[in-house]
Amino acid sequence: MADDIRVTRGSGNVFADLGFENPEAELLQAQRLREERLDAALAQGMADSAAGRVTPLDEAFEAVMAAIGRKPAT
């Protein structure tokens, strides 16, 4: 059964892994958005530990899926 499982290590840039035309720019934009949200959360008095959870993984996954024109499975 273990022989049926194939794992591919990602490059560290999900946009490159998904074949985006300009993956570096996409990653930079995503990083900037996360920083803006973190800064806004901290400015509103949110604790550092809670502010780090401003962009949950599910939200990021949905954003990537939307960017490639696919809906996540529900």
Rank of each mutant, 00 (worst) to 15 (best):
D58S: 04
F61V: 12
T74E: 09
E24C: 02
V14E: 08
F20A: 01
R6S: 09
D39V: 12
F61H: 11
A67W: 00
F15T: 05
S11K: 10
A63G: 10
A63S: 14
M46A: 11
I68R: 15
F15P: 01
E24T: 13
A25I: 13
D3H: 11
M46V: 15
V54A: 12
V54T: 11
E21G: 02
A30Q: 03
D17M: 08
A50S: 00
A51F: 01
R6L: 12
P72H: 09
A2C: 14
G69I: 00
V54C: 04
E35F: 09
L28M: 13
S49I: 14
L18M: 13
E36D: 09
I68N: 00
A16V: 03
L57N: 01
V7W: 11
A16M: 05
L38T: 08
R6D: 10
T74A: 14
A66T: 05
V7Y: 06
P56Q: 12
A73I: 11
R53Y: 01
M1Y: 14
V7N: 03
A41P: 00
R70G: 00
A50L: 11
F20W: 07
A2H: 13
L27I: 06
L18Y: 02
G69C: 01
G69N: 02
F20Q: 10
S49R: 15
P72A: 11
A41M: 08
R34D: 15
L57D: 00
Q44K: 15
R32H: 06
E59K: 10
E26I: 08
R6H: 11
F15L: 10
A67Q: 02
T8G: 08
A67K: 06
E59S: 06
Q31V: 06
R9E: 06
F61C: 12
Q29R: 15
I5V: 15
M65V: 03
E21A: 13
T55E: 09
E36T: 06
R70V: 12
R32A: 10
D17N: 08
R37D: 03
R34N: 06
G10W: 05
E35R: 14
S49M: 09
A40C: 10
E26S: 11
A67H: 01
G12Q: 08
Q29K: 12
